[in-house]
Amino acid sequence: MTSPTGEQRDGDAPSTDMMGLRERKKLQQRDAIERAMLTRVLELGYDRATIEDVCDDVGISKKTFFNYYHSKDAAILGIRHELPDEGDIARRLGPPDADRGSNYLDTLVDVMMLGFSTMPANGETAALRKQVIRKMPQMMFHSHRMTLELQHRISRVLRTYLQERPDRRVFAGSPADDGEDAALDDEIMLAASTATSLARMRYMQSLREGDVVPVPSMRAMLTDYLDRISQTGPTAEGLPD
């Protein structure tokens, strides 16, 4: 997906006209594998859909399959084999003296999206994936381990970033005598968790809408929900033990 100016947005799959021949072939191969896997899952069920049969359908070896995906679940969900490392996350946040227009949370959501899917925004593969997710919503939890690892990486990078750029902190604070900074710990925990939740929401929304929803729109949706839920029902203090 591109911005109104035609620029590529972080976290979105690149358009084919921006790729070389080799990259286009890889994307086509990936799409063929995912389409074959999704078709077999829908026709035969999860347990009877095997990697061996998918390889036969596409005409590739198991070695080639595992060059693209680390598991059957990854092919079903379209999850990338490689997660962004801490260096890549730091580069996306920018150097300490960079003047970025967006807040760091939006950048972290884009990073988290890389751990969810490289699926096209529309087309046959996206339609098949929608059917599978609707039929087996529990599939979304199969990516939990990869998501958790990426969340840990984000937390470590964000700590360094906010220590170097205290002006970007949301919660003001300073280290105590023992070196602990409770406010910073809270901010990192909330930022990493919120980025994960927003990325998952964005992914599910893309399945439903057929397009990648802008991060600010997802933030606004979450903020509106939290505002509304805080005005209804009992508070935590009012709940029974």
Rank of each mutant, 00 (worst) to 15 (best):
Y203K: 04
M136N: 02
H144N: 08
A90V: 01
A220E: 14
E149H: 05
P216Y: 14
D57F: 10
D47Q: 14
P4Y: 11
D227C: 03
G238A: 07
K62M: 02
N122S: 09
L114K: 02
D97P: 05
G45S: 10
A182T: 14
T2I: 05
G179I: 15
S193V: 13
G210I: 04
E43Q: 15
L239T: 01
D97V: 09
L128Y: 07
M218G: 07
E7D: 13
G20P: 00
A13P: 11
S3C: 06
G115D: 01
L38D: 01
D167M: 05
D106G: 04
V109L: 15
Q29Y: 06
V111Y: 10
G210E: 01
M112E: 09
E34K: 13
L108T: 02
V41G: 09
G173S: 06
M140C: 06
D97N: 04
M1V: 01
I33V: 10
I51Q: 08
A172V: 09
D167Y: 08
G45L: 08
V58L: 11
H81E: 00
G6P: 02
L105T: 04
L184H: 14
Q231R: 03
P234G: 03
T5L: 13
S61C: 01
T194I: 11
F65K: 00
N67R: 05
F116V: 06
L158H: 15
T235K: 08
K130C: 03
I79H: 00
M112V: 06
L207K: 04
V58K: 08
G233R: 10
F66N: 00
T2L: 04
S15P: 05
